[in-house]
Structures are given as C-alpha cells and as structure tokens.
Amino acid sequence: MLPCIPHPTDGRSRLVVATDKGRALVVRAAQIWAEEEEKWAELVGADRLGDMRDALRMFVDTHDNGRVPLRPIW
C-alpha cells in the first residue's frame, strides 16, 4: 500500500507520496541511466548522442499536443 497524506490546501484530496525506498530506487534508476548514456556516448560520440536526445525531445514536445503516455527521463 502506498502512503498517503492530506492535501495541504484541498481537504477533499490526499496525496500519494514516495517512500524512502521508492525515492532511493528513483535515484538508482537515474544513476543507471547516466551510466548507460556514457556508454552510448563512447559508442556513437557525444555529438550524435546529443542529436538523438534533441530528436527525442522534439518528438515528445510535438506528439499528441505534448501528451506522452510515459515520462521521459533523458
């Protein structure tokens, strides 16, 4: 079960909050992503990796009026 706390301004609502373990997992996922990006940069070059990131950002920004089913982390 996810912990919930009262919404600070809307008494009808509750906020789902991340646990310490959940926050630690997000930090670890970001570390793994950064490690993989370094490998990609070594493989294709930093410039090409930047171009790929720019292309992905353009896709996210223009796809379905900016609505994307997943949150990008690049």
Rank of each mutant, 00 (worst) to 15 (best):
A41C: 06
A55M: 06
W40K: 05
R14P: 01
D51E: 15
M58W: 06
N65S: 15
V16M: 08
P69N: 11
I5C: 03
R57T: 13
Q31I: 04
R14I: 08
G11Y: 05
G11T: 12
E38C: 13
E36H: 09
D51F: 06
T62K: 05
R28S: 10
P69H: 10
L25A: 15
R71S: 13
A30Q: 10
R28A: 13
A18I: 04
N65R: 06
H63L: 12
A41L: 00
P72M: 01
T19D: 04
A29N: 06
G66K: 07
A55Y: 01
D64L: 07
T62I: 00
V16G: 00
P8L: 07
R12V: 04
A18M: 09
E38L: 14
A30E: 04
T19W: 01
P72Y: 02
R67F: 15
A46C: 04
I5W: 01
W40R: 08
G45P: 03
I32G: 00
L2C: 04
L15P: 00
R71Q: 10
V16P: 01
V60Q: 15
L15Y: 02
D51H: 13
V26W: 06
R28H: 09
H63E: 12
G50T: 06
K21G: 08
G11C: 03
L15T: 01
S13Y: 05
V44K: 03
K21T: 10
A34L: 08
G22P: 00
N65G: 15
E36P: 00
R53S: 06
R12N: 14
D51W: 08
P6G: 05
W33R: 14
L56Q: 11
P3N: 06
N65C: 05
V17Q: 09
A24D: 12
L43P: 00
V27S: 08
A30S: 11
P69Q: 11
A30H: 08
K21F: 07
W33G: 03
P3E: 13
H63G: 03
F59A: 15
G50I: 08
M1Q: 07
L25N: 10
R28I: 03
A29K: 06
D51R: 14
R57P: 00
A18H: 10
L25H: 06
E35W: 04
H7A: 04
D47K: 10
V26T: 10
R71E: 13
D61S: 15
D61I: 00
D10Q: 07
V16H: 04
T9W: 04
M1D: 11
N65Y: 04
T62A: 13
M1I: 13
L49G: 05
R53W: 00
R67S: 12
E37Y: 03
G22T: 05
D20L: 10
W40A: 05
M52D: 12
V26Q: 15
M52N: 06
P3I: 08
A55S: 12
P8D: 12
G66C: 02
E42H: 09
W40S: 02
E38K: 13
L2P: 12
G45F: 02
E37F: 03
V27D: 15
D47S: 02
D64E: 14
R53Y: 02
G11N: 10
V44S: 00
M58N: 09
S13N: 06
E35I: 05
R48E: 13
F59T: 13
C4E: 15
P6A: 14
K39C: 13
D64A: 12
G11Q: 08
D54Y: 01
